[in-house]
Nucleic acid binder design. Sequence first.
RNA 1: GUCCCUGUAGUUCAAUGGAUAGAACAUCAGCCUUCUAAGCUGAAUAUCUAGGUUCGAUUCCUAGCGGGGAUACCA
Length: 557
Amino acid sequence: MILDKIKIKIAEALNISEDDLVYPPNSDLGDFSWPLFKLSQEKKMSPVEIAEKIKEDLLDRDDLMNILEKIEIAGPYLNFFIKPNFLITELLGNIFSRGRDYGQNSDGDGDLSIFEFSNVNTHKNFHIGHLRNISLGDSLCRLHRANGFNSYPVSYINDFGIHTAKAIWNYKKSHNPDLNKCYSETVKEIEENPDLLREISKIMSDIEACRGENYKVWRKTRKISLGEFNGIYKKLKIKFKKNYFESEVIDQGKEMVKHLIKKRVLRQSEGAIIADLEKYDLGVLPIIRSDGTALYPVADLALAERKFKDFKKLKNSFVVVDVRQSLYFKQLFKVLSLLGYRQNFKHLSYDFITLPEGMMSSRSGNAISFYDLYEKVLDKLIIESKKRHPDWSDKKIKKNCELLTIAILKFEMLKVSPRKIITFSMEEAIKFDGFSALYILYGLVRIKSILKKSRFKLRGVKGVDFSNLKTDYEKKISLKLAKYSDIVKRAGDNFDPSEIAKYLFELFKLFSDYYQNVKVLSSEKDTKKARLIFMGAIALVAENALGLLGIDSLDEI
RNA sequence: GUCCCUGUAGUUCAAUGGAUAGAACAUCAGCCUUCUAAGCUGAAUAUCUAGGUUCGAUUCCUAGCGGGGAUACCA
């Protein structure tokens, strides 16, 4: 915002587009920079010659020199330095007047968007792959909202597939409440004895027909799974606007399939029902198996229709699912467009989590469960926390560490760009230094501690003299704070929360340096006041940014 | 075979086509009578290969090589 204003002024004075101004790689070089390569070619003059001429002209312009401290020539670049006092005064005024909204924009025009994520399977493990999915989906939804969209999270739970029948087959014998174990045991048995598939098929058709013992067991085990999921959502503080279940849309989906066959969008082939999308270069999408049972798209078609019923005026329907299903969603969206849907469907893909020894899967039973990771991180934090705070009660330590655990886990999932594979190692996961949520929250706690000790109450920033904030640290941090809105925009446009995570880490690296070298509480009266307000601004921006990642801040660590 | 993603330091990741390619981890050496040392400071190491576009390429294009994924009845 403030930087845009300054940028525009400089660009106008130079009679160039503001996009021609870049940020120098190093802040010692300047705050904005104009590379002169193009101009020097056009004019057939050396960049230095041009730079000197332009610099002379600019120095005469009072309107510009009110905001600029100096202009320097560095080789083929013309570098501009903003007056720190001007920057800081404008910036802090802006931050405190916008408050919780600082950094947001209204680009989305309030368009209604929904983000479908979670996509967990009942009767299977909630593993760390789902943690990535949920952390990402939630953050993307928040980011979208910060960019002016009216966005809501919805969940879709697969409680109906053949995997439920497989889990139930073993559960009926073992009564093991660990349903994932039941599932993987059955998978193993089927490998040895493929004839079991007939029994599985019988269970599946009983579930579909809502009849007998199998259906009862399905209800019971489904409830166990959903209870577990809800516990995790609660811990992660994720609230969905709407919860969809495969079992609730499947019938409607079957009706739609009949209709689509009549409309010749779908047809029979090799005993199955398919959507032939060869002419769109999208291959073939199987919809109904040759034994008559439904495949994934049946429910997904109905789900799309359900969404439009529940969310009138829906403009964007986003689905957060891993990258392996890219082709599937292209096919599905094509079928929906053939059906006449004109809204924006988008698959937001991300790469999966692998283990150092290879792929993770519920099938083989080697997936790391959410709770396994959660407990390990929590235990480690509690041990450390007890060492640091012998005076804290066990209850306080536990509560604090639980909040920290969630923050750390979400941050780990979000700090990597969605298109990167995360190779998970438990050893790395329980280290918390460096680029981690703990580093950021720790810095924030230091700020809060200073503010608390100062007993200072902020009553607006109008008329406050910030000219005492003249250290290089303060200028660097101010520039960083000023760039926040650009980051929100970019992260939103790219659907990439890792930009926010990186931003936070960079901001707190600057802060840690500042903290180490500049004292707030012991500084002279007016300087102290200005610095306390400055601390408040950093905390505000940091909490806004953490909010976009779905992370709450703490008062003490 | 075809399509998609990907290749940067010992490892995990950065770098709107621009200046000396940045961090973190690990390793080594320092910093607590001073706002929380889960912190700070300092030290070594890297763009897969070959072309092309450009004043300028880690970034864009082409080919090759390596890794991962998808490719009709798994989800």
